[in-house]
Design a protein around this nucleic acid. Structure first.
Length: 240
DNA sequence: AAATACCTCAACCGCAGGCCG
DNA sequence: CCGGCCTGCGGTTGAGGTATT
């Protein structure tokens, strides 16, 4: 209780920023909880981390979002839902907070998405509501199916409701995800094949394959761009 | 010019998961 | 295995700025 009160809240001052920057210049990132003790800064470690990651880090871009970035965010959101850190990780210079704010303030409006008042339907809880409503898909994007929790039960749901060929594709992807990370192109091929033979259905791809390793799955790589092109917004949100 | 409404985004909060002793 | 600590994530809040009345 008392320990919490010793920390300041609210906007950071230039002075505080300088102190934090100096500390990180010398000691590097991490060990956030040591910062208040080491520097005398009246901020908790969590606050220091957030300030650095969202504002002070030289990697953070401060200018407005470009059309390309918007497009990327929309596509990724349709694929994986509110996984802001994953989305931000694919957009150089953007933080999860920036992406989240940008989505909530600009892109929602742009897409005409209305936030639902009722709690999100829990997958697996209710058999009668397992298949997403068309209306829901319109409002939140099919990616919202995956947004709350990509648990095994969700995965089972997806598998159960996928068409045979897409389920096979998923299985193939899952089998290979621990071995060859770049099998995404196979998934895309599979998708194209499936799309050609089965118009109007929605395929699924395991996000852990997509985002499992930062070293090889850069969003700007031809591979991931191909993949995103294979999942256009209108496919994921059929009547958007 | 003042009051009010609206918008944006930095920061906070609570929770979950990983790590370590 | 358990508990404590740390980090990271997503949802939410609210201060400050801007637009409107």
């Amino acid at each position: 209780m008392e320990a919490e009160n010793q920390y300041k809240k609210g906007l950071w001052t230039e002075e505080e920023d300088k102190v934090l920057q100096e500390y990180i210049k010398v000691h590097g990132r991490g060990q956030w909880n040591r910062i208040p003790k080491a520097t005398g800064l009246k901020r908790c470690g969590k606050s220091c981390r957030l300030r650095w990651l969202n504002y002070l880090s030289p990697n953070v871009k401060r200018d407005g979002f470009s059309e390309e970035e918007d497009d990327l965010i929309i596509r990724l959101h349709n694929l994986i839902g509110n996984r802001w850190s994953l989305i931000a990780g694919r957009i150089p210079g953007r933080t999860d907070n920036q992406v989240k704010n940008h989505w909530n303030t600009h892109l929602c409006k742009k897409l005409g998405i209305i936030k639902r008042q009722e709690p999100a339907r829990k997958l697996g809880d209710d058999n009668t509501s397992k298949i997403p409503h068309h209306e829901d898909q319109q409002q939140q994007g099919a990616g919202a199916i995956l947004s709350t929790n990509n648990s095994n039960s969700d995965l089972n749901f997806l598998m159960n409701n996928a068409t045979n060929s897409s389920a096979e594709a998923m299985e193939a992807v899952l089998e290979n995800k621990t071995k060859e990370p770049a099998l995404i192109s196979d998934a895309v091929d599979h998708h194209h094949h499936h799309q050609a033979s089965n118009e109007g259905t929605v395929d699924f791809v395991d996000e852990s394959l997509l985002f499992s390793n930062d070293d090889y799955m850069l969003i700007n790589s031809p591979c991931i761009v191909d993949f995103l092109d294979a999942f256009p917004v209108d496919l994921m949100c059929p009547r958007l």
